[in-house]
Design a protein around this nucleic acid. Structure first.
Lengths: 142, 142
DNA sequence: TCTATATCGATGCACTTGCATTGAAATACT
DNA sequence: AGTATTTCAATGCAAGTGCATCGATATAGA
Protein backbone atom coordinates (compact mmCIF):
# COMPACT_ATOMS: atom_id res chain seq x y z
CA UNK A 1 0.00 0.00 0.00
CA UNK A 2 1.66 3.16 -1.25
CA UNK A 3 1.11 6.11 1.07
CA UNK A 4 0.81 9.70 -0.14
CA UNK A 5 3.63 12.24 0.12
CA UNK A 6 3.16 15.41 2.13
CA UNK A 7 2.73 17.35 -1.07
CA UNK A 8 0.07 14.96 -2.28
CA UNK A 9 -1.82 15.30 0.98
CA UNK A 10 -1.55 19.03 0.56
CA UNK A 11 -3.04 18.87 -2.89
CA UNK A 12 -5.99 16.88 -1.63
CA UNK A 13 -6.62 19.11 1.36
CA UNK A 14 -6.35 22.29 -0.67
CA UNK A 15 -8.43 20.91 -3.48
CA UNK A 16 -11.16 20.34 -0.95
CA UNK A 17 -10.87 23.67 0.78
CA UNK A 18 -10.58 25.62 -2.43
CA UNK A 19 -13.61 24.01 -3.97
CA UNK A 20 -15.73 24.46 -0.88
CA UNK A 21 -14.71 28.05 -0.37
CA UNK A 22 -15.19 29.08 -3.96
CA UNK A 23 -18.45 27.22 -4.23
CA UNK A 24 -19.79 28.79 -1.06
CA UNK A 25 -18.83 32.25 -2.29
CA UNK A 26 -20.44 31.75 -5.67
CA UNK A 27 -23.59 30.26 -4.21
CA UNK A 28 -23.83 33.18 -1.85
CA UNK A 29 -23.61 35.61 -4.75
CA UNK A 30 -26.38 33.77 -6.60
CA UNK A 31 -28.58 33.56 -3.57
CA UNK A 32 -28.06 37.22 -2.83
CA UNK A 33 -29.33 38.02 -6.31
CA UNK A 34 -32.40 35.84 -5.73
CA UNK A 35 -31.32 33.00 -8.02
CA UNK A 36 -31.43 29.25 -7.50
CA UNK A 37 -28.31 27.25 -6.80
CA UNK A 38 -25.56 26.04 -9.09
CA UNK A 39 -27.10 22.64 -9.78
CA UNK A 40 -30.03 24.30 -11.43
CA UNK A 41 -27.79 26.49 -13.53
CA UNK A 42 -25.74 23.49 -14.58
CA UNK A 43 -28.77 21.66 -15.86
CA UNK A 44 -30.10 24.68 -17.69
CA UNK A 45 -26.79 25.42 -19.37
CA UNK A 46 -26.23 21.82 -20.31
CA UNK A 47 -29.63 21.65 -21.94
CA UNK A 48 -29.28 25.01 -23.63
CA UNK A 49 -26.05 23.93 -25.25
CA UNK A 50 -27.74 21.02 -26.94
CA UNK A 51 -28.88 22.04 -30.39
CA UNK A 52 -32.46 20.98 -29.67
CA UNK A 53 -32.38 21.89 -26.03
CA UNK A 54 -33.09 18.26 -25.16
CA UNK A 55 -31.08 15.60 -23.38
CA UNK A 56 -31.83 12.35 -21.66
CA UNK A 57 -31.46 12.29 -17.89
CA UNK A 58 -28.54 9.91 -18.27
CA UNK A 59 -26.66 12.38 -20.39
CA UNK A 60 -27.19 15.05 -17.80
CA UNK A 61 -26.12 12.77 -14.97
CA UNK A 62 -22.92 11.87 -16.72
CA UNK A 63 -22.15 15.37 -17.84
CA UNK A 64 -22.72 16.95 -14.46
CA UNK A 65 -21.89 14.09 -12.07
CA UNK A 66 -25.34 13.72 -10.60
CA UNK A 67 -26.71 10.66 -8.91
CA UNK A 68 -29.69 9.25 -10.73
CA UNK A 69 -32.13 9.77 -7.89
CA UNK A 70 -30.91 13.26 -7.18
CA UNK A 71 -31.34 14.36 -10.74
CA UNK A 72 -34.76 12.76 -10.89
CA UNK A 73 -35.90 14.87 -7.99
CA UNK A 74 -34.09 17.98 -9.13
CA UNK A 75 -35.96 17.72 -12.43
CA UNK A 76 -39.21 17.40 -10.48
CA UNK A 77 -38.50 20.71 -8.83
CA UNK A 78 -37.37 22.40 -12.01
CA UNK A 79 -40.39 21.12 -13.86
CA UNK A 80 -42.63 22.52 -11.14
CA UNK A 81 -41.01 25.90 -11.74
CA UNK A 82 -41.62 25.53 -15.45
CA UNK A 83 -37.92 25.59 -16.36
CA UNK A 84 -37.82 22.20 -18.04
CA UNK A 85 -40.33 19.71 -19.31
CA UNK A 86 -40.16 15.93 -19.62
CA UNK A 87 -41.17 14.45 -22.96
CA UNK A 88 -41.29 10.86 -24.20
CA UNK A 89 -38.20 9.33 -25.74
CA UNK A 90 -38.95 8.16 -29.26
CA UNK A 91 -38.65 4.40 -29.50
CA UNK A 92 -37.99 3.61 -25.84
CA UNK A 93 -40.77 3.89 -23.34
CA UNK A 94 -38.45 3.49 -20.36
CA UNK A 95 -36.57 6.61 -21.23
CA UNK A 96 -37.42 10.26 -21.51
CA UNK A 97 -36.06 13.50 -22.81
CA UNK A 98 -35.70 16.63 -20.78
CA UNK A 99 -36.33 19.80 -22.68
CA UNK A 100 -35.51 23.32 -21.60
CA UNK A 101 -38.39 25.78 -21.76
CA UNK A 102 -38.34 29.42 -22.76
CA UNK A 103 -38.59 30.28 -19.11
CA UNK A 104 -35.57 28.06 -18.46
CA UNK A 105 -33.54 29.73 -21.19
CA UNK A 106 -34.44 33.09 -19.83
CA UNK A 107 -33.41 32.21 -16.30
CA UNK A 108 -30.08 30.87 -17.50
CA UNK A 109 -29.49 34.08 -19.41
CA UNK A 110 -30.25 36.23 -16.39
CA UNK A 111 -28.10 34.14 -14.08
CA UNK A 112 -24.97 34.22 -16.18
CA UNK A 113 -23.90 37.80 -15.45
CA UNK A 114 -24.05 37.16 -11.72
CA UNK A 115 -22.47 33.72 -11.96
CA UNK A 116 -19.76 34.79 -14.38
CA UNK A 117 -18.84 37.80 -12.30
CA UNK A 118 -18.54 35.56 -9.26
CA UNK A 119 -16.31 33.09 -11.08
CA UNK A 120 -14.06 35.88 -12.17
CA UNK A 121 -13.97 37.40 -8.74
CA UNK A 122 -13.29 34.23 -6.78
CA UNK A 123 -11.17 32.34 -9.29
CA UNK A 124 -9.95 34.43 -12.20
CA UNK A 125 -8.70 37.37 -10.23
CA UNK A 126 -6.31 35.18 -8.25
CA UNK A 127 -4.13 34.13 -11.17
CA UNK A 128 -2.09 35.41 -14.05
CA UNK A 129 -3.07 34.02 -17.46
CA UNK A 130 -0.33 31.43 -17.68
CA UNK A 131 -1.10 30.22 -14.19
CA UNK A 132 -4.75 29.83 -15.05
CA UNK A 133 -3.90 27.61 -17.99
CA UNK A 134 -1.46 25.62 -15.93
CA UNK A 135 -3.97 25.07 -13.18
CA UNK A 136 -6.70 24.08 -15.61
CA UNK A 137 -4.38 21.59 -17.22
CA UNK A 138 -3.30 20.03 -13.94
CA UNK A 139 -6.85 19.78 -12.64
CA UNK A 140 -7.88 18.19 -15.88
CA UNK A 141 -5.90 15.12 -14.96
CA UNK A 142 -8.09 14.37 -12.01
CA UNK B 1 -18.65 43.60 -14.14
CA UNK B 2 -15.59 41.70 -15.24
CA UNK B 3 -16.46 38.35 -16.85
CA UNK B 4 -14.25 35.26 -16.60
CA UNK B 5 -12.01 34.06 -19.43
CA UNK B 6 -12.53 30.64 -20.95
CA UNK B 7 -9.52 29.37 -19.03
CA UNK B 8 -10.90 30.70 -15.78
CA UNK B 9 -14.23 28.99 -16.41
CA UNK B 10 -12.28 25.83 -17.12
CA UNK B 11 -10.47 26.09 -13.81
CA UNK B 12 -13.71 26.44 -11.94
CA UNK B 13 -15.44 23.58 -13.73
CA UNK B 14 -12.48 21.27 -13.35
CA UNK B 15 -11.94 22.24 -9.74
CA UNK B 16 -15.48 21.17 -9.11
CA UNK B 17 -15.33 17.96 -11.06
CA UNK B 18 -11.95 16.97 -9.71
CA UNK B 19 -12.97 17.51 -6.13
CA UNK B 20 -16.22 15.63 -6.51
CA UNK B 21 -14.65 12.72 -8.32
CA UNK B 22 -11.76 12.34 -5.93
CA UNK B 23 -13.97 12.76 -2.92
CA UNK B 24 -16.43 10.18 -4.18
CA UNK B 25 -13.62 7.71 -4.84
CA UNK B 26 -12.08 8.20 -1.44
CA UNK B 27 -15.41 7.98 0.36
CA UNK B 28 -16.16 4.79 -1.51
CA UNK B 29 -12.86 3.28 -0.37
CA UNK B 30 -13.61 4.19 3.23
CA UNK B 31 -17.12 2.86 3.09
CA UNK B 32 -15.95 -0.34 1.49
CA UNK B 33 -13.63 -0.85 4.44
CA UNK B 34 -16.51 -0.27 6.83
CA UNK B 35 -15.36 3.15 8.01
CA UNK B 36 -17.32 6.36 8.52
CA UNK B 37 -17.07 9.27 6.13
CA UNK B 38 -14.40 11.92 5.71
CA UNK B 39 -16.04 14.46 8.00
CA UNK B 40 -15.62 12.12 10.91
CA UNK B 41 -12.00 11.51 10.06
CA UNK B 42 -11.36 15.21 9.76
CA UNK B 43 -12.69 15.89 13.23
CA UNK B 44 -10.74 13.02 14.77
CA UNK B 45 -7.49 14.05 13.14
CA UNK B 46 -7.96 17.69 14.04
CA UNK B 47 -8.51 16.77 17.68
CA UNK B 48 -5.68 14.27 17.75
CA UNK B 49 -3.24 16.88 16.53
CA UNK B 50 -4.01 19.11 19.47
CA UNK B 51 -1.57 18.47 22.25
CA UNK B 52 -4.37 17.77 24.74
CA UNK B 53 -6.73 16.27 22.23
CA UNK B 54 -9.22 19.03 22.99
CA UNK B 55 -10.62 21.85 20.92
CA UNK B 56 -13.64 24.11 21.11
CA UNK B 57 -16.33 23.53 18.49
CA UNK B 58 -15.51 26.93 17.02
CA UNK B 59 -11.94 25.93 16.39
CA UNK B 60 -13.09 22.81 14.62
CA UNK B 61 -15.60 24.71 12.53
CA UNK B 62 -13.02 27.16 11.40
CA UNK B 63 -10.35 24.59 10.77
CA UNK B 64 -12.56 22.27 8.76
CA UNK B 65 -15.10 24.66 7.26
CA UNK B 66 -18.13 23.30 9.03
CA UNK B 67 -21.35 25.12 9.67
CA UNK B 68 -22.05 25.54 13.36
CA UNK B 69 -25.26 23.53 13.32
CA UNK B 70 -23.77 20.76 11.23
CA UNK B 71 -20.84 20.31 13.53
CA UNK B 72 -23.12 20.36 16.54
CA UNK B 73 -25.05 17.44 15.16
CA UNK B 74 -22.00 15.62 13.87
CA UNK B 75 -20.56 15.77 17.37
CA UNK B 76 -23.83 14.33 18.69
CA UNK B 77 -23.35 11.32 16.45
CA UNK B 78 -19.68 10.93 17.23
CA UNK B 79 -20.34 11.21 20.92
CA UNK B 80 -22.99 8.52 20.64
CA UNK B 81 -20.34 6.28 19.09
CA UNK B 82 -17.97 7.11 21.93
CA UNK B 83 -15.38 8.75 19.68
CA UNK B 84 -15.42 12.15 21.35
CA UNK B 85 -16.75 13.59 24.55
CA UNK B 86 -17.95 17.09 25.39
CA UNK B 87 -16.56 18.65 28.52
CA UNK B 88 -17.14 22.04 30.16
CA UNK B 89 -15.04 25.00 29.11
CA UNK B 90 -13.26 26.44 32.11
CA UNK B 91 -14.50 29.93 32.86
CA UNK B 92 -17.27 30.16 30.26
CA UNK B 93 -20.47 28.25 30.72
CA UNK B 94 -21.68 28.93 27.20
CA UNK B 95 -18.76 27.15 25.65
CA UNK B 96 -17.47 23.61 25.72
CA UNK B 97 -14.46 21.57 24.78
CA UNK B 98 -14.55 18.53 22.60
CA UNK B 99 -12.12 15.83 23.59
CA UNK B 100 -11.09 12.81 21.57
CA UNK B 101 -11.44 9.48 23.35
CA UNK B 102 -9.17 6.45 23.17
CA UNK B 103 -11.73 4.85 20.92
CA UNK B 104 -11.58 7.92 18.70
CA UNK B 105 -7.80 7.82 18.51
CA UNK B 106 -7.94 4.17 17.65
CA UNK B 107 -10.44 4.68 14.86
CA UNK B 108 -8.36 7.46 13.35
CA UNK B 109 -5.32 5.22 13.42
CA UNK B 110 -7.13 2.39 11.71
CA UNK B 111 -8.65 4.66 9.08
CA UNK B 112 -5.43 6.27 7.97
CA UNK B 113 -3.98 3.36 6.00
CA UNK B 114 -7.15 3.13 3.93
CA UNK B 115 -7.54 6.87 3.57
CA UNK B 116 -3.89 7.48 2.80
CA UNK B 117 -3.79 4.75 0.19
CA UNK B 118 -6.86 6.25 -1.45
CA UNK B 119 -5.32 9.73 -1.53
CA UNK B 120 -2.22 8.36 -3.15
CA UNK B 121 -4.18 6.34 -5.63
CA UNK B 122 -6.60 9.03 -6.71
CA UNK B 123 -4.36 12.08 -6.39
CA UNK B 124 -0.68 11.28 -5.97
CA UNK B 125 -0.38 8.74 -8.72
CA UNK B 126 -1.54 11.27 -11.32
CA UNK B 127 1.38 13.66 -10.99
CA UNK B 128 5.13 13.90 -11.02
CA UNK B 129 6.67 15.44 -7.91
CA UNK B 130 7.20 18.91 -9.34
CA UNK B 131 3.64 18.97 -10.65
CA UNK B 132 2.29 18.04 -7.26
CA UNK B 133 4.09 20.96 -5.66
CA UNK B 134 2.96 23.32 -8.38
CA UNK B 135 -0.63 22.24 -8.04
CA UNK B 136 -0.56 22.52 -4.27
CA UNK B 137 0.86 25.99 -4.55
CA UNK B 138 -1.71 27.18 -7.07
CA UNK B 139 -4.61 25.71 -5.12
CA UNK B 140 -3.29 27.38 -2.02
CA UNK B 141 -4.22 30.73 -3.48
CA UNK B 142 -7.88 29.95 -3.46
C1' DT C 1 -25.06 48.68 38.27
C1' DC C 2 -28.35 47.93 34.83
C1' DT C 3 -29.60 47.32 30.24
C1' DA C 4 -28.40 46.35 25.41
C1' DT C 5 -25.74 43.68 22.47
C1' DA C 6 -23.01 39.74 21.11
C1' DT C 7 -21.50 34.99 21.37
C1' DC C 8 -22.12 30.10 22.11
C1' DG C 9 -24.23 25.74 21.23
C1' DA C 10 -28.76 23.36 20.44
C1' DT C 11 -32.97 22.50 17.98
C1' DG C 12 -37.67 22.65 15.20
C1' DC C 13 -38.87 22.52 10.68
C1' DA C 14 -38.59 22.12 5.86
C1' DC C 15 -35.87 20.57 2.30
C1' DT C 16 -32.25 17.60 0.21
C1' DT C 17 -29.56 13.50 -0.17
C1' DG C 18 -28.29 8.52 0.17
C1' DC C 19 -29.62 3.94 -0.09
C1' DA C 20 -32.32 0.31 -1.40
C1' DT C 21 -35.93 -1.09 -4.02
C1' DT C 22 -39.74 -0.96 -7.34
C1' DG C 23 -42.16 -1.39 -11.78
C1' DA C 24 -41.82 -0.90 -16.55
C1' DA C 25 -39.54 -1.74 -20.66
C1' DA C 26 -35.66 -3.24 -23.57
C1' DT C 27 -31.94 -6.50 -24.56
C1' DA C 28 -29.41 -10.93 -24.22
C1' DC C 29 -29.47 -15.67 -23.92
C1' DT C 30 -31.09 -20.58 -25.09
C1' DA D 1 -40.54 -17.50 -28.85
C1' DG D 2 -39.75 -17.60 -23.89
C1' DT D 3 -37.10 -16.60 -19.93
C1' DA D 4 -33.34 -14.17 -17.58
C1' DT D 5 -30.77 -10.13 -17.26
C1' DT D 6 -30.08 -5.32 -17.77
C1' DT D 7 -31.44 -0.56 -18.10
C1' DC D 8 -34.29 3.35 -16.97
C1' DA D 9 -36.69 6.51 -13.98
C1' DA D 10 -39.27 7.00 -9.65
C1' DT D 11 -39.99 6.56 -4.73
C1' DG D 12 -40.31 5.13 0.55
C1' DC D 13 -37.63 5.75 4.20
C1' DA D 14 -33.78 7.14 7.00
C1' DA D 15 -30.17 10.37 7.53
C1' DG D 16 -28.06 14.82 6.76
C1' DT D 17 -28.32 19.90 5.79
C1' DG D 18 -29.87 24.84 5.72
C1' DC D 19 -32.21 28.33 7.92
C1' DA D 20 -34.04 30.67 11.57
C1' DT D 21 -34.39 30.93 16.23
C1' DC D 22 -33.92 29.82 21.14
C1' DG D 23 -32.10 29.93 25.87
C1' DA D 24 -28.08 30.64 28.44
C1' DT D 25 -24.23 33.25 29.31
C1' DA D 26 -20.78 36.76 28.65
C1' DT D 27 -19.31 41.43 27.27
C1' DA D 28 -19.98 46.38 26.22
C1' DG D 29 -21.94 50.67 26.99
C1' DA D 30 -24.87 54.15 29.53
Amino acid sequence: MQMPSEATQDVWIRLNCAQRRVKASIEAALREAGFPCLDWYGVLLHLKRDENGRLSPREIERGLLFEQYNLSRLLDRMETEGLVRRIPYPGDKRRQLVEITERGRDLQKRMWPVYGAAIDRFVGSQFADTETEQLASLLGRL
